[in-house]
Amino acid sequence: MDTKFDLEKISQNIVYVKPVVTADLPTEVQDQVGDLDQIYAVHNASGEQLALVADRKLAFHLAREHKMEPVTLH
Rank of each mutant, 00 (worst) to 15 (best):
residue 58 L to R: 15
residue 5 F to I: 14
residue 50 L to W: 11
residue 70 P to A: 06
residue 8 E to C: 05
residue 15 V to F: 02
residue 34 G to V: 04
residue 51 A to C: 10
residue 6 D to T: 10
residue 13 N to V: 02
residue 63 A to L: 11
residue 43 H to S: 14
residue 47 G to L: 03
residue 9 K to E: 05
residue 10 I to S: 00
residue 1 M to D: 12
residue 11 S to Y: 15
residue 46 S to K: 13
residue 26 P to I: 03
residue 33 V to C: 03
residue 73 L to I: 01
residue 12 Q to V: 04
residue 33 V to S: 06
residue 47 G to M: 05
residue 48 E to D: 12
residue 23 A to T: 11
residue 29 V to P: 12
residue 1 M to F: 13
residue 18 K to Q: 13
residue 68 M to Q: 15
residue 71 V to I: 12
residue 74 H to N: 14
residue 33 V to F: 01
residue 66 H to P: 11
residue 53 V to I: 08
residue 74 H to A: 15
residue 60 F to R: 11
residue 23 A to S: 11
residue 31 D to C: 03
residue 55 D to G: 03
residue 24 D to C: 01
residue 73 L to T: 05
residue 12 Q to M: 03
residue 17 V to F: 04
residue 48 E to W: 00
residue 61 H to V: 08
residue 5 F to R: 14
residue 51 A to Y: 15
residue 35 D to E: 11
residue 24 D to W: 09
residue 1 M to C: 09
residue 62 L to N: 10
residue 58 L to I: 11
residue 35 D to G: 01
residue 38 Q to W: 02
residue 41 A to F: 06
residue 50 L to N: 05
residue 60 F to W: 10
residue 55 D to Q: 06
residue 19 P to A: 15
residue 35 D to R: 07
residue 1 M to S: 15
residue 51 A to G: 12
residue 49 Q to K: 11
residue 64 R to A: 10
residue 1 M to P: 15
residue 46 S to R: 15
residue 59 A to T: 02
residue 72 T to Y: 12
residue 36 L to V: 05
residue 41 A to R: 03
residue 48 E to V: 04
residue 65 E to P: 08
residue 63 A to C: 06
residue 1 M to R: 15
residue 7 L to D: 11
residue 51 A to F: 11
residue 51 A to T: 09
residue 26 P to T: 01
residue 56 R to Q: 14
residue 37 D to W: 07
residue 46 S to Y: 11
residue 65 E to I: 04
residue 37 D to A: 12
residue 29 V to T: 10
residue 30 Q to C: 05
residue 54 A to P: 10
residue 52 L to F: 04
residue 71 V to D: 14
residue 72 T to Q: 13
residue 52 L to E: 01
residue 1 M to Q: 14
residue 22 T to H: 00
residue 43 H to L: 07
residue 20 V to L: 07
residue 23 A to K: 14
residue 2 D to R: 09
residue 21 V to D: 11
residue 59 A to P: 10
residue 60 F to K: 15
residue 12 Q to D: 03
residue 40 Y to T: 00
residue 35 D to W: 02
residue 58 L to V: 13
residue 37 D to I: 03
residue 40 Y to A: 02
residue 71 V to S: 08
residue 53 V to F: 00
residue 39 I to N: 01
residue 68 M to W: 12
residue 73 L to C: 08
residue 73 L to N: 04
residue 21 V to C: 07
residue 59 A to Q: 02
residue 1 M to A: 14
residue 42 V to F: 02
residue 42 V to S: 02
residue 4 K to M: 14
residue 61 H to S: 14
residue 17 V to S: 00
residue 13 N to R: 11
residue 61 H to T: 14
residue 24 D to T: 09
residue 61 H to N: 15
residue 23 A to Y: 07
residue 33 V to L: 08
residue 24 D to R: 08
residue 46 S to F: 09
residue 56 R to H: 14
residue 71 V to E: 15
residue 4 K to F: 15
residue 28 E to D: 13
residue 74 H to I: 03
residue 26 P to M: 01
residue 66 H to Y: 12
residue 26 P to C: 05
residue 48 E to I: 00
residue 1 M to I: 10
residue 51 A to P: 08
residue 13 N to I: 02
residue 11 S to K: 12
residue 35 D to T: 11
residue 56 R to S: 07
residue 16 Y to G: 00
residue 28 E to K: 10
residue 36 L to S: 08
residue 27 T to L: 13
residue 25 L to F: 01
residue 39 I to P: 01
residue 55 D to Y: 04
